[in-house]
Structure formats: C-alpha cells, structure tokens
Design a protein around this nucleic acid. Structure first.
Lengths: 343, 343
DNA sequence: CTGAAAGCGCTAACAC
DNA sequence: GTGTTAGCGCTTTCAG
C-alpha cells in the first residue's frame, strides 16, 4: 500500500502569503481573528496554488473530520444507489468525503459497520434503510450512536424511527394506504400482499397503512394473504408463486417495494397472466426503472435522491435538543399495472 | 463539524500487552521483526479491546493510505452501482475505505475529481467508465495519474485503454460483434444503431464491433442509420423516436447499452410496435433489470460486480513495469426482445 | 489581530 | 527482537 508523496503544504501557502502558519490556518477554515484583508489574500493564494488541505493531518489535529460515513443495505439496489447519489451531491458541494459501507440487511453486521465508522473517526454517520423490529439490536445501535453523538459526532438516518437521532422518514404508512385505496377504488377485494421480512420496520409500517385503508372499507388485513419473503426481487418471485398457488382467486397484489413488484411481474409473465386485465400489481418507492417495466408499474413515489440530500443536510446542522424528523411526502403514481378488478 | 472524541489508542493496547508502542505497531501491521508469540498476544488484546487504528494518524505518519477513491460517472446508474458494489466488497475484505465521487460524464469534472482525490492523499484511485475520444483531456488525465503513480499511488481503471495504467477492459468490440451476428442470423438487414455520444471510447469500440460483423456479411455500417444521443435512457428515447421517424423500415435496433435499450423499448411501446414481432431490440451490459423488462432484453452480459472486484485487486498488487490488462469476457444473453426479421 | 509552540496518534528510522 | 525518538501536516492554546 502506497503513500503518495507530499504536495503543497499549508506552510507553503503561508510563506507565499507572508503570514504565519496559524494565520493561514485560520484564514482558510474561515475562523475569525484574522483581518478580512489578510484572509482574502491567503484564500486567493491558496486557490491559485491549488492547495487542498491534507484531511488526515487536519482531522488528526483535532479539526473537523470531513468525512461522512454512509451505511446502506446494498449499493447496487436502486433504492439505495439513488439515496447515495443525493448524499454524494451534497457532500461534493460541501467538500466532504463520502465513505460507503454495506450492511447486507443484517442488523448485526450493520452495527459492526457503524462501530467501525466511529472508530475511524468519521464526523458524520448516515444510516439508510429500514430499521429492525428486534428491539435488542436496535437498542444497541441506538446506544452506540448516542455515545458517538455525545462525543461530538453527528448522525442522521433515513427510514428508521427508533434510533433517537435526526431522521428522514418516508411516508410508509400513508403510501401503503394510498396504494390500497387505489386498488379498492378499482373494485379489487381479493388482494394479496407480497411483503418483505416482518423483521423490517418498513414492512410493518407499509403493512399498517394497507390495514388502515382496508378497515375503512370494512375489510380486514387478517383475512388477506400476506406472504413474507425477502424484500428483494427474488423474494417477490417467491411470494408471487405462492400467491398464485395458494390463492388463485387473487385479483391484485400489493408488493411492498418495487423490487418485489418486479419479481411478482416476472412470475405473472411466466404464467402468462395478463396484467392488469387479470391481475393488478402495485409497488412502492418508484425506482427509476419502474416506469420502464412492461406494464409500467403503479407505485408510490418516494424522493430518494432528495432523501439522501435531506439526511446529510440534517446532519450538517448543529444537533438539536430533540431529534428532528422530516417527512418525505409521497405521490401515488398510477401507471399501467393496475386496472379495474375483473368481473 | 464535530470531532468525535478519542477512543482507544495504540498506546493503550501496547500497555495492556506489556510492549512498546513500536512493537505493537509492527505486530498489528503484520510487519516482521516481532516474535510470533508477542505478535499474537498484541493482536489478541487489540481484538478484545476492539481497537481500530486511527486512519488519519496512520496515514499522516507516512503509512499506507488505506482509502481507495472510486470515480464513477454516476452511482445511481446500475452499471456503475454494480461496479461499486464489487469494489466495496473487496475493500471491506481488506479493511479499506471506499470514497466515491461522481464525474457526471464530464471529462473536465472527472479530472478535477481525480486531482482532488490525489490532493486528499488517497492511496488508490479507481476510475470507472468510458474514456473520451478527446485526446487532449485524456493526455492530461494520463499525466496526472502517472505523476500520482510515481509518487507511490496505485491506479486501476475500468473500461479505458489510453490511460497507461492497469485496466479492466470489457469486451466491447467482441460484444458488439456478437450482438450484430445474432441479429444477422435472425435475418435482419435493416438495422439501426442507437449509440451514445461519439466522444466516448466505449461507444466507438462497440460500434467497431458492429461494423466488423456487418462487413463479414457484406454490409457496411456507413449505410445504416447510427443515431448519436446521450448514453442514457433518455438518449435511448430520443434515438428511438428519430429512428422510427426517419427510418421506418428498420427491423432491429442495436442500443449500445441497456439504458439506451430501455429508452428505445419505451418508445416502441408508446407507438404500439410489437417487440420482437415487428422490431427486435438488443442492449449491452446486462444490468440486473434487463431480465425483468418486458420483453426481457437480449443483451451482452458484462460481469460488472467482478469488474469492480478485479479493478481493486489489480490496484492492490504492486505496480508492474508494463500496465496490466484484464479482459472481462462477455456472454450473449438471448431473451425475448429479439426474433426473426419480419418477412 | 498575529505568531510561536505544543500536540493529535501513528509509523519508521535508529539504537540497544 | 524490541524500545526510543523524531516527525507526518494541521489546529489550537497561549503569548505578544
């Protein structure tokens, strides 16, 4: 492993500007105690020379750690890569580095990643992706993050409520309700749900929204088939097969994310079941390919890129007494995968 | 911006193990000059204590910079997010940090990102994504990377040949040929190409493959419509519209990546042109959704995740005298978007 | 408002 | 083999 040689140092800039190291440092970090005039000169010269501070030295010296750690379940899942895109944009604007880690949807591994980031002394930690219903592990994670915050670290999460930190919260329940109402309005009554693992709070929340909408129409979620598999395309396939086999009378499937919906659509296509004529399908998230599936997918749009941006923006603000919560809003996007219930 | 407080330091570990700082350092970085016995003890204790070296201090002290900078055109493009996934996997195995930057398909911006990574003293730089036909900018990038390597940095690229560094090279030309031969074998002669920007070497190379296959069958690429738009889904849409309008007799479209193919399919769907009965469509890359489009997409599979893994693996090896080149291989994946040419 | 000097935690010479 | 010590480049007291 190499150590790319030294480049411009702050001393060089200071020398060129005819000031001391300390003054140069102050000028560049925008701290006060320097006359505007000198500060301007230093900044200009540093610009001209193309000086970039050595982040290792800077952090070591007790300055701000300018790197943000982003924990996602899986970067090559569009839901997360869109979020990552948003984070990277804002980070670039602010001159921050983004370090990405995978948790692989394993809460224990996720906790390890978080601990590692803390040990690495990153200044900001962002955790994206559903929380876990297992209270024990959530409590552990919560404690770890809280200790980190007390040491001065900043944290924001996306899509988790029980962590006691600033959070960007997708409208999971409302979205689930919107989707369900859409199907009910189309006359569907024999609805099945392709749900992800019941260990994920996102699944629980979206399901709760489905349940509420049903109840308002005198139906009960408990009477409908809810198949829990992986929260992935493959899980969607398995759920789809099972629904077809055990509940052939079904006229609409609610998949709790777009990945699962894609799996369900694949199964229906394989069985030559026309969508939406014989079966309607809805997803959740509106990942960018949802519009390009055939039939294009009716789903609930979440602004993933913005969610990433918002999360980092929250973390960049000073910590507040009570954790902040930002709701994302949602939009029902009706496309071609839903139609009236067959007679 | 916070500075999360100090945790365990190497001195603490050394003390607990009853050895000096230096010995502890040597033991943990696996360098020799320490008896197996002592080394084991130090490692065990550091494990128990949950010690993680401060990467800033480590790097500053002239040790290995343990972070790898990854430059992609866009993380939320599946082609790149799959590559990133591979890089992150290997990095995690090796205990390296991955820093991701966007270039936004702008060679100048890309160069700036690279310069920034160098200034940040990352130890490894990985650049993914097509090169540019503009020789000037490529030369500049090449010079920058070369200087960086001479200072001890390591570099590997994915999908670019003219940078004079270790490279993972997708079978662009062979893939283009395979795709074209497939269509020719199905009887297609009126073929159009939805190509990305001619400034991208990937586009040029894939096109060259198409040309070669055509020539072997007595046809000439120059006689076929080749529409250059953006190398994205939106570009595919525009190319599709243009092909339909200006060359309605076309029976097959070669899109030079899957994103463009998706755009083309969307246009055909909008025009109610049956695929593959009236028009065949092929893509390139085999991003994971390709199989879930309807019709599922015939394409050339590139092992993106492995490409990411390979690139980092190359960079992890000591630099060789001559740049190494690894070809990826490719597989033609025939699915439902291609069929015999209409009579 | 500015400068001098003391570290941040680690690695790498250099001694023993 | 192991310990001692001098920095890496920066921020931040502390004097002036």
């Amino acid at each position: 492993m190499p150590k790319p040689g030294s480049r411009l140092r702050l001393v060089d800039v200071a020398e060129r500007a005819g000031v001391s190291l300390a003054t140069a440092s102050r000028a560049l970090s925008g701290r006060d105690g320097v006359s505007e005039e000198v500060a301007d000169r230093v900044r200009r010269i540093s610009q001209e020379l193309g000086y970039v501070a050595n982040p290792y030295a800077r952090t070591l010296a007790g300055g701000a750690s300018s790197t943000v750690g982003l924990v996602v379940h899986q970067v090559d899942d569009p839901y997360f890569s869109e979020i990552a895109g948003g984070v990277i944009e804002v980070a670039a604007e602010q001159g921050l580095l983004v370090q990405i880690c995978h948790s692989g949807r394993d809460p224990h591994f996720e906790l390890r990643q978080i601990r590692h980031l803390i040990a690495q002394r990153v200044g900001i930690i962002l955790v994206a992706g559903s929380g876990y219903t297992d209270q024990r592990i959530e409590a552990e994670t919560r404690a770890e993050l809280s200790a980190y915050q007390n040491l001065g670290g900043r944290v924001a999460v996306i899509g988790r409520h029980s962590l006691g930190v600033d959070a960007v919260l997708p409208d999971n329940e409302a979205g689930g309700r919107a989707l369900t109402e859409h199907l009910l309005a189309l006359g569907h009554r024999r609805i099945a749900v392709a749900a992800g693992s019941a260990d994920l709070t996102t699944v629980v929340d979206r399901l709760a929204g489905v349940g509420k909408a049903l109840r308002q129409h005198g139906l009960d979620l408990a009477d409908l088939p809810v198949v829990h598999t992986d929260f992935t395309r493959e899980g969607g396939r398995r759920a789809g097969e099972q629904i077809l086999r055990d509940h052939p009378e079904t006229t609409a499937v609610i998949a709790l994310n777009d990945a699962m919906a894609m799996g369900v659509l694949a199964v229906l296509r394989a069985h030559r079941i026309p969508v939406p004529e014989r079966m309607s399908v809805v997803g959740f998230d509106d990942v960018s390919v949802a519009a390009d599936l055939a039939p294009s997918l009716t789903t609930v749009r979440l602004p993933m890129t913005d969610m990433g941006r918002m999360a980092l923006a929250l973390a960049l603000k000073p910590r507040s007494v009570r954790p902040r919560r930002r709701s994302t809003g949602h939009t029902l996007v009706v496309r071609d995968s839903t139609g009236p219930a067959p007679a």
